[in-house]
């Protein structure tokens, strides 16, 4: 099963302040550990939200609304993620606990979330229906 460790943003990460060398080294060592255990699938850091944008649909069936970053609610923003493949929830928790404090200075926060497995989606009639609709839409768009 797959889990995503989501590292939350801080004022520093949003300001584009690079982490200390010490922290970079610790993170690198941690990633190496994940690789050596054969559990790391992907890991990336995200640029500050100032270079991002948000798309929302405030009206049902209406047009998309696009808002440029930066966004203010720092604690809800994401600064990076690490995707792992493990045997159990417990193992995922253990790996998440071993991640160094991602920002240092006691500001770090990591959120651990399980990824939906394809079979779970396959078994779920609502997901199946949504999938079929999406596919139909994509096909129609291709024809148009």
């Amino acid at each position: 099963m797959r889990f995503m460790m989501i590292v939350k943003a801080t004022a520093d990460s949003e300001a584009g302040v690079m982490p200390s060398q010490e922290l970079i080294d610790a993170m690198q060592k941690y990633n190496e550990e994940l690789v050596k255990a054969g559990v790391l699938l992907a890991a990336d850091g995200l640029q500050p939200s100032s270079s991002g944008l948000r798309i929302s649909y405030p009206e049902r069936g209406g047009k998309a609304k696009v808002v440029d970053g930066p966004f203010t609610e720092v604690k809800e923003l994401i600064a990076g993620y690490t995707l792992i493949e493990v045997k159990s929830r417990e193992e995922a928790i253990q790996w998440a606990l071993r991640m160094p404090d991602p920002h240092g200075f006691g500001h770090g926060e990591i959120e651990l979330r399980q990824v939906f497995e394809a079979e779970e989606i396959m078994e779920n009639p609502i997901h199946l229906m949504k999938e079929r609709e999406l596919r139909k839409k994509a096909e129609e768009q291709q024809k148009a």
Binding site: A37, G38, E85, K87
Partner: peptide, 14 residues
């Protein structure tokens, strides 16, 4: 499959 893949990934590192 998962065990084999994981062991393969470990071996690729060592």
């Amino acid at each position: 499959c998962q065990e084999a893949l994981r062991l393969g990934r470990v071996l690729a590192e060592i």
